[in-house]
Design a protein around this nucleic acid. Structure first.
Lengths: 224, 224
DNA sequence: CGAACACTTGATAAAAGTCAAACGACGTGG
DNA sequence: CCACGTCGTTTGACTTTTATCAAGTGTTCG
């Protein structure tokens, strides 16, 4: 617990549209995101700007850039929020100081990797409604992890253009598809809020499984 | 070194189309794949069968299923080959016995995660040639890691149907797009061999970066 | 209150999917 | 060693889905 708190000892606040990690630079630290939404976007030459990942409160920003000399994307905040930077050497020491905590972090990264696989295999299939369904359910369940009074809706600070850049659709088609899903009683929108009206149907059409619902951490023994 | 060799002490051979991991079962071990190709496919109800990942020699099969109670996909061999199973508790012990090796494995998983992000963000965009270009380059560079006499071509044991299931295209469109890429001098095919004729063009059209080309493992100190 | 900015709607174009048939390679068994 | 059947690939015709362009309608925020 002390070690975990140590990672969050220097909270820094940021405003909307801050650049948190610059593209093509060396990254020598990680950030615990404690409040706010941050997106990782590729600075591609084309006008489209693929969004590689959406970071939500509780996530650690920078893992996927750690083993490389230069960052491949930039991280930009979409809301104001708070993050806690710590040097990557701190993570390295953790493997010696607490093998148990290292295993937990390893498990966390592995879970995220599984979610990433879910996205890769779903988003590459051309069904706009299924893509959006997966985005909505994954985001809702991930937000619930750190915000337990969340039930069936959340505030989404991403524009439809950005959602399209994430799942691979044009903003126009995101709009149309969301409208149709709303007409079919699957979701409901109000301002920037997204409400899940029919979780089961959304889950079935996107072949979704809640990765946090049936964990097995037997191999992370309580007392090492 | 002893610890690494320990993981490969019980080599098992498999034939083509063996089921290595069954879907919806508990997984208590991992497999070092030393020879052959293995695919991870979702047993979806529909006739399409999304391919979540392709394992190549040197990969460890099962990481992404480790923290869950049940596997979400099945692993099936596409060639004959050799793998070395070891219990997941072995991985757990590794975190105590060798923090340095644990960090290296952590780094390896992180690199794979970055590649997965590359796939997710590219495959979700609707450009058949770019999808296939990314698949070809990623596969070639990954194969080169353990087979250094590989230069510009490799034997691909996947059918066009399977390649389509991986990148999200119909088999018909894979055929057409490959033919066109061949006509444009980007690749060349002969039997099941795929030859890269114009690496740079393929890399540019798919926004590819070789993840193993510019690693920074400073945070994995040589002497912990 | 007004000016960005985001979203919606319609018309049209491009990309990829589907169906079906033909072709080719490959392995098996006579 | 050849005939045959299976499986994978190619090709053509047509359909569906999504992208693009452009104009109009909110919405938000200084």
């Amino acid at each position: 617990m002390d070690l975990l708190e140590d990672l969050e000892k220097s909270p820094t606040s940021f405003i909307k549209d801050d650049i948190i990690i610059r593209s093509e630079t060396a990254l020598d630290r990680l950030y615990v995101l404690t409040k706010g939404w941050v997106i990782a976007e590729k600075m591609s030459h084309a006008d489209s700007r693929p969004i590689v990942h959406v970071f939500l409160p509780g996530d650690i920003i920078g893992f996927s850039e750690l083993p490389f000399q230069k960052t491949s994307y930039q991280a930009r905040s979409r809301t104001s929020g708070i993050m806690c930077p710590f040097p990557s050497s701190r993570l390295s020491r953790l493997f010696v100081e607490s093998p148990r905590l290292a295993r937990l972090i390893f498990a966390a990264v592995t879970i995220e990797r599984a979610e990433q696989e879910d996205r890769a295999s779903q988003f590459c299939r051309n069904n706009a409604a299924a893509k959006l369904a997966l985005f909505v359910l994954q985001t809702l369940d991930r937000l619930k992890l750190l915000n337990s009074n969340l039930r069936d809706q959340f505030q989404c600070p991403l524009t439809q253009q950005e959602i399209g850049d994430l799942v691979g659709l044009s903003s126009v088609h995101v709009s149309r598809t969301f409208s149709q899903m709303e007409a079919n009683g699957l979701i409901q929108r109000h301002k920037s809020f997204l409400k899940v009206k029919d979780y089961d149907s959304l889950a079935e059409m996107s072949d979704y499984r809640n990765r946090y619902g049936s964990l097995n951490l037997d191999w992370v023994p309580a007392h090492p």
